[in-house]
Simulated scan of single mutants.
Amino acid sequence: MRARLARKLEQTWYGSARPGALLKFLEKVYYLGFRIHQRYQLARRATDLEHSAIIVVGNLTAGGTGKTPFVIRLVELAREAGFTPGVVSRGHGRLTNEPVSVHADSDPAECGDEPVLIARRARCPVQVDSEREQAVRLLFGQGVNLVIADDGLQRSRLPRQLEICVVDRQKGAGNGHLLPAGPLREPLSRLGDIEIVVEHCGPGVLPDEAEASLMQLQPGRFTRLHGDDSCTAEGLRSQGGKIHAIAGIADPQRFWKTLAELGLEFEAHPFPDHHVFRMRDFSGFPAAEIVVMTEKDAVKCSRLALFNAWFLPVSAKFSEPLEEKLRSALHKMSKAANMKLT
């Protein structure tokens, strides 16, 4: 039922279907509620954090645009700039509401799959809390001097020195409507207020566009879910078994496309975003056959007894203009932080 509704909305948002009268009415209701909520948040803005080193990364559309790999790379750039960075997140998809300090071996059911992935790959302090402001204060108290808020663009209660929006270059804003008639969380005009808008484009050579802030996701080597083995797509094919590709992410088609471009033939098994995997999800796969998944899904499957399963890590690669913009912004924030200390 949920998957069928998601597919129907996807066709309306990004396909030829037009939103009906009910969706358009709900869009007006959503926008009214959004405006009221934004005013409520601004009235309760965390003024004690007003001049703190906080970067907010988010998007304007529902669904995935590649924010998590972007945040991981941004942490690396911040560290190179001399910061001690940390990340805060709401922890979407988790089963509890308690504040959690996230580590590489944390249970994604308690803190969400994306925060665990960030903790593993970025190797920085990660704090999950629905009250992001409290999480920021906690990290600053632990010695962090730059906080990156993952998926916090609409969290106007949280002050920020820099806003970054990641958009999918292929999907764009879809039909341009607000939720639920379209994919937009807030009006497209909001982009005019954001300092850096990053376009996530497809694989291949980054286009030579002088002012473009572009990002691509580059696949690494397939890595065994349990163990340290890794191999290329050719190595995976040489095993000879049938390949089942699973994806519990917002845009599974992106994963299927990557696998196809790597030369793999596979049977696709899409699951809802942030799906909590159980062994029964794999009961129809013979033990001799191969399972491949995204790195985010590997976080959720790491405690399952899947012994012929592999995940494909991806890393964000930035265009030179984007990398320069980010380094420049981090340099300015570093200078401002040093001036506060003197």
Rank of each mutant, 00 (worst) to 15 (best):
D281L: 12
L264Q: 11
P252N: 13
F222V: 08
H275Q: 10
Q218Y: 04
F285T: 05
E261S: 15
P207K: 00
L304Q: 00
H244M: 12
E265F: 04
C231S: 08
V292Y: 00
E209H: 11
V299F: 04
S283P: 02
I246F: 15
L236F: 02
A210S: 07
F282L: 11
A287R: 13
V291M: 09
A305V: 07
S283I: 01
S283D: 15
L262A: 01
D208F: 09
F282R: 15
R221P: 01
I246Q: 07
S302D: 09
L306W: 08
F282H: 01
S213T: 02
Q253H: 14
G248Q: 04
H226G: 07
K300D: 04
E295L: 10
F266H: 02
E261Y: 07
F285A: 00
K257F: 12
E261P: 05
D251M: 12
L214E: 08
E295P: 12
G248R: 09
I243P: 00
H269T: 10
M279K: 14
K300C: 05
A233I: 09
K300W: 00
L264W: 09
V299P: 05
F307W: 09
A305I: 06
H274W: 07
S302W: 03
T258Y: 06
A309N: 13
E211C: 11
A268C: 08
T294K: 07
D228K: 06
A305G: 05
C301Y: 03
P252G: 14
D281H: 15
R254W: 01
N308H: 06
P272H: 03
L259S: 02
L306E: 01
A298H: 11
G220F: 02
D229L: 05
R237P: 04
A212M: 02
H275D: 02
R237K: 15
A287V: 11
H226Y: 03
H274T: 03
A260R: 14
G263L: 06
Q239N: 06
P207M: 02
L264N: 10
T258N: 13
V291I: 15
